[in-house]
Design a protein around this nucleic acid. Structure first.
Lengths: 195, 195, 195, 195
DNA sequence: GATGAATGAGTGTTCATTCAT
DNA sequence: GATGAATGAACACTCATTCAT
């Protein structure tokens, strides 16, 4: 191994996150990512199959920790469905607060890529979705939630969330994110709770 | 652009809608649009400044009629804010039902373009948003609605709507759209109404 | 049509012949061909699908006239098989004498391309081969030729011819080509004639 | 390179022969050769200067044993020129029958390399050619052969041979090679013998 | 000797846009 | 207005070779 100065794989993906967040996927140039990562162009292709592959790996980085949170929450029997639902939102908000740039990449690129390469997404995002739907269903079964169409509901909420986060990423302050978080929770609960 | 047209301008934009809907903006080629419109490449540049400009004009086609509906509804004093809110949703749903392909273009491309060219959008979409916010505010003022953060609420709803419509455009049937429409209305109302 | 100054398609293929002859196919750069042809890079792709396609078209230019000669000769009933065989060799020698650079491209690139893209060659070269085999067979039938294995014989002769022409292209003089022509004819005839 | 080897140098050249035979020189990747040889990329450059150098060494492996055969035959005074000529062809055919893949590399790559790097070939191939010409000349001197132009004749024969072997390597059976061998001998002898 | 991560010059091809006709 | 051949900057990706370990 030549040089071995720090972790190139990590440097590349971080440069890519920055670049994709700034310019969007299509306008981002491989050569810019390489420069930002302080790495030769060829090195990018040592660690990633191609430009798309970098994006896919970024999505994994976004959704894997969220999904792991979810698994823990979902399997904890001491929580009510409402609490689980709130924690689910929290884990998304927390992740985005921690890495706003990853958030930007997600909100801007994921839909397009899911459309163009539906096969690629057999992973953490899908698992996250599934886990979320399970929580809603359990709440409906226990009559804690209204009898909503689960697929429609979760899409609506995720879509709304993404839109809010997209806007937030333009000017990401902790304060404004908390305001969004509270509003969404409140709105969802009064919308979903069968009181 | 309404009457006796079998003209090039219309043929181009319709071909573009089809092409953007199918392949996405970046993967769509001007030459394909020209072929689909049965028009020479050069003719596209007679009617449109460039590729972006076509997209912008498509957005106008989407939002102008919706906005016109809105204006009519908003100024009608015989409706309550709740009725106006429902009509607003209806006018979006109706537009999407009528032109699913325009809907695809909107859901996939608008955000990116608004990010890349924020200046371009001084138009019907913005006006629609404003009108929508006014309705919410009037509902809050009359205590018919909860005292929600209007900007957050409208973003959330529009984002959720877009996500649902994006999914719907993959398999657009009248029946499924009505199901979505009812779910969204119900959810928004129980979420928003201060009963 | 912009510029229409002379025939770009022809200029490109001639530049390509020169370039391929000089550097070989793999070492030839599209940009060099473009420069030599006094044409923009993009123009090459207006007239040819890709680099391979240019090569294929060159082979057509080589073999089409030879094949047309052959057809005329083969169908002429006043010639004996021996005369036809001689004329066949002549038409190859004449073509090579006329366009030595095309000859270089043929001798250096055709085998490789036939190996890599066997599908592409359903054309003049194959037809030429077939016509040549027919002449040999008719000579065998009339007992003018020895009962040789036709496929082996024609491959041997063509291979020998190519090798000689390859060498000749390094220093192409009319005199030396005629010497080769006479030697080959003499050798083939004493080798093939059943006296 | 003969004895107790299971060594890297040999493994590399054998992998290269396979790879060049399959994909051609330009399309063969060093990394593929390394993998096939079960050797690190870097090791290839320990034993060979560069990619060209491997090819050159392969040619040596092809022509050295043939040349050694030739030397033995040529210096044996008990053979007539005709016998020597036949033995010469046999030694080429035998070599190709034994290592068809080396044959493929020779027929496909040697000409190109001789063109690009004429300096590299001060070796066994040249020596083989020279020895062959000597045999022909001695036959002419003794009036056993016709008074052909030796250079032209030997090129013609070698070229024809290569073409036949090229075809044969696509489907190499012992039977078909013997058929080719007999045909070539017969043709050359009736073509060359001054009876 | 052996390794394989790192390199970066090099290349075929694309495609939005132009402009002479 | 209409055309479409012409353009050439731009770009993702390749791969022989190197060299620190």
């Amino acid at each position: 191994m030549r040089h071995k100065e720090g972790n190139k794989e990590k440097a590349i993906i971080e440069a890519a996150i920055e670049t994709f967040a700034e310019d969007g996927f299509y306008k981002s140039k491989i050569v810019d990512i390489a420069e930002k990562a302080n790495v030769a162009i060829g090195s990018i292709y040592v660690y990633y199959k191609n430009k798309d592959d970098i994006l896919l790996k970024i999505f994994d980085q976004i959704w894997e920790p969220i999904y792991n949170d979810m698994k823990r929450i979902a399997s904890d029997k001491s929580y009510t469905p409402t609490q689980k639902f709130e924690f689910m939102l929290d884990s998304v908000f927390d992740a985005f607060e921690k890495y706003p740039e990853k958030a930007v990449v997600f909100v801007n690129e994921q839909n397009r890529l899911m459309k163009e390469r539906p096969k690629s997404f057999t992973n953490y995002y899908e698992l996250f979705i599934k886990e979320g739907e399970k929580i809603i269903k359990s709440g409906i079964r226990s009559s804690e939630f209204k009898n909503l169409n689960v697929r429609i509901f979760r899409r609506f909420v995720l879509g709304g969330l993404r839109e809010l986060l997209r806007e937030w990423t333009k000017n990401p302050t902790k304060r404004s994110l908390n305001q969004i978080r509270d509003s969404v929770k409140y709105f969802c609960k009064t919308g979903i709770l069968d009181k």
